Amino acid sequence: MTLQRPIARAGSRSVKRALGVQAALEWAFRIEQAQLELPLPPDVTEEGFGFGLEYVLLQRAVLGCKIDGGQHKIGGYTHEDAEAIAATVAGIPDSLGGKRMAIRVAELARSGLTPDWMPGAIPRCVPTIVKQNQHGTHAGTIVVGTERVRVRGLGDRAKWKTFDILACPVTFSPHPHQIEAARRGYDDWCQALGWVREGLIAGGMLRDVVLTAAMPKALPWKESR
């Protein structure tokens, strides 16, 4: 995804820019280098920590005033819209993955990546043991039992011989559970982005960014079929 040009700084001639939620997240975390400030654990009091960024942003929205912007980015100013986006990500509810999902959303945005839903993955039956010799590569076998067989003979000459029963152990690669987990993770990420988008719009905290309806493709593996 191509990142948008930098958004005008607070105090300059403001030009609102329309971004989808994924592009807005990448702008906030990659370009502005906003930091994720997660809520404190329930057993830790906020005494001595001051007000959190999310609290300040909410108060700003209520009062209709602006803040000076944080100094998280070394040697520069972090746009207040980027801080609002980061604060909203930090508030992803437990029903959508909570702190773990917030960290995942921020890391993917900072890297400019989309979760790998394993496009085109088809489980294939493959041997777990592969051997090579002068004739090439072939599946290996293991002994899973023995069998006694009576060998033909005349009269008392008939004999019993013991043979090994061989089997080729196989597995599925990629495993269906692996594909299912990857696609479930992508879907969870999409739902988290939808929650972030709705929260930012409902909170009315963005000054220079306008969120569009653009969203990552839902269930893209169904389209690929």
Rank of each mutant, 00 (worst) to 15 (best):
D94Q: 12
K73W: 03
G155Y: 05
A182R: 07
L25K: 05
V144Y: 10
S173M: 00
R124V: 00
I165D: 11
R30D: 01
L219Y: 11
E32A: 00
W27H: 02
A109C: 03
T141F: 12
L3H: 06
D81L: 00
A213K: 04
T45S: 15
C168M: 15
F163R: 03
E47F: 15
T2V: 10
K159G: 03
L38M: 05
T114D: 08
K66W: 08
A181W: 04
Q59K: 13
G153K: 03
H175E: 04
V170A: 03
P127I: 07
G136H: 10
M101A: 01
G204A: 08
T45C: 06
F51T: 11
R13V: 13
L36D: 02
I67V: 13
T171K: 02
Q132R: 11
K131E: 15
L200F: 10
A24I: 02
L211S: 09
M101C: 08
L53Y: 06
R30N: 11
M118D: 02
L53K: 04
S111G: 13
P6L: 04
R5A: 15
K217V: 15
A214M: 10
R207A: 09
L113H: 15
V62T: 11
A86K: 03
F163I: 06
V89W: 00
G48C: 01
G91C: 14
E32V: 01
A10N: 09
R124M: 05
G50V: 10
P216S: 09
G76L: 11
E54C: 09
T88L: 13
G52E: 05
Q132H: 13
T2M: 06
C168N: 08
I165N: 04
L58I: 07
A139T: 10
D68Y: 10
Q191C: 15
R225T: 11
A8Y: 03
A84W: 14
L219Q: 11
C190S: 05
L40G: 07
G64R: 01
P127C: 06
E32I: 00
I179P: 09
L96A: 06
L166C: 08
